[in-house]
Design a protein around this nucleic acid. Sequence first.
DNA 1: CTCACGTGATACTGATTGGTATCACTTTAT
DNA 2: ATAAAGTGATACCAATCAGTATCACGTGAG
Lengths: 105, 105
Amino acid sequence: MNTDQPIFRALADPTRRDILLMLRDTDMTITQVASNFDMTRAAVKKHLTVLSDGGLITVRANGREKYNALNPNAFTPIRDWLSFFDAFWDDRLSTLKTLIEKDST
Amino acid sequence: MNTDQPIFRALADPTRRDILLMLRDTDMTITQVASNFDMTRAAVKKHLTVLSDGGLITVRANGREKYNALNPNAFTPIRDWLSFFDAFWDDRLSTLKTLIEKDST
DNA sequence: CTCACGTGATACTGATTGGTATCACTTTAT
DNA sequence: ATAAAGTGATACCAATCAGTATCACGTGAG
């Protein structure tokens, strides 16, 4: 799929992966997230936008604050993509198995 | 883990993901891979280097040719990283469950 | 109302990245 | 031996990206 690009891109940056781990424990506002990094709030905001574009987080407004939360379905596309290779391993193993069995007759 | 960076970076490019899908079916030389893309062999070589750095492929020399093959253990780090969030979902669900049960008493 | 707080958005800079062009090296075939 | 095929490596260019600085906008408290 070409629609996977935003999520793979979102996961490519270590800062963004750290943010996801933070949101694992609790939802956070931009300022709260930024307080955990040695970087400007604007920079963090950019990362959050990329994460949102990748569907990894959702944003919920609460007054003048905005809470960022992990999206429960976030990693489904990644798992689906990975599973595309599982079938392959099975194929190769079954091919190997066939060869071995053929050899043992 | 910070050691995950090479593999996440390797998967961030759509061309590289396509290469992995190609290698899913059969091992290929650089020239063979390059013939499937509208880009120079040198560019493909760069992608293969990144994939190799990420531990996603292995390279085997055969005379003057070099065969690139998918690494069977390639995706383990990714799966491990993803599983780090599974525990979290369970926690949140059990918290929710506890709240519901407490509410129903 | 007024002012501080939390956020959004833009322009700009330095670093990284994808890609090309080019040359050098090794191996196979004639 | 000589040439062609397959690959490695470097320098270079254009585009993208991470981060900063700065200003504008809406919200809540005094």
